[in-house]
Amino acid sequence: MTTQISTAKPGLKQWLTSDTPQSRWQAKCGRAWLGWIKFSENKLAMIGLSVVVGLILVTIFAPLLAPYDPLAANLANRIQPPSGDHWFGTDQLGRDILSRLIYGAQYTLLIVGLVAITAAPLGLLVGTAAGFFGGWIDAVLMRITDVFLAFPKLILALAFVSALGPGIENAILAIAITAWPPYARIARAETITVRKEDYIEAARLQGTSNFALIIGHITPMCMSSLVVRVTLDMAGMILIAAGLGFLGLGAQPPMPEWGAMVSDGRQFLLEQWWVATVPGLAIFVVSLGFNLLGDGLRDVLDPRGGD
């Protein structure tokens, strides 16, 4: 990634860092480029980014990368220790753990991605509306948020999944439902700090409608903190998804979801440690990756960091 950037043509770099962009597109690219420079100086964040990019690549190329069919049971080959044939060994049904890990990446990504694109906008909308309008709208929306915040996330997710029935779709839904309240809080706090700013009032004096003000003027100011928070939360989401899978309420067998894999392996944890440990390590590494990425993004995006 870095090598590609540093070998970019000088013409491109000039185009990106120009003080007088010629188009909207160039201005946007220039801004993104400066952010990238700042981000790429942070080594830990780059590690986080490579973990996440790695996860995405593994998801896309799973059929090419996986040496075996993740669902193909081979009872003659049960719980083999790691070897040349099976790098991470096999599980209790003789399935290759490496292949299951590779295919499992897509469920992790699916959970994280779906939750992010549902919970974040919902929280953003609720929070900005509450902060912008104030008064009774604020009171009602925030009390609802408080109700959700009052329960521990995992417990609430558990309750939802048991009501909706186990399964990965319901797990995603349950996590999304429990994930939005903190976003609403953040968005509301940011909105309250910016809503009296001159530039918002100036836009109001141009005749901008409330809806356009919230979408076009307030949300961009909330985005940075929100993106950072969502990224940092992704680790938590992965853990909750894994927890639900572990308890048998998330992904159902034979789906190679990492939490469920840990759950399957726990019966042999002492003698055949790799069955549970390897997917556990995968969860750990990916969670850490998201956390590091979130930290790095915070440094780049935090509006208080200045330009």
């Binding site: 909207r24 001159d198 901008t208």
Partner: peptide, 24 residues
């Protein structure tokens, strides 16, 4: 407004700041 540092949206280009009222 008084403060030119506060009255322009920090995440909008000049183009967007000027185009928006025209569109509204």
């Amino acid at each position: 407004f008084q403060d030119p540092f506060g009255s322009l949206h920090p995440r909008h280009t000049i183009d967007r700041i000027l185009t928006e009222p025209v569109n509204i």
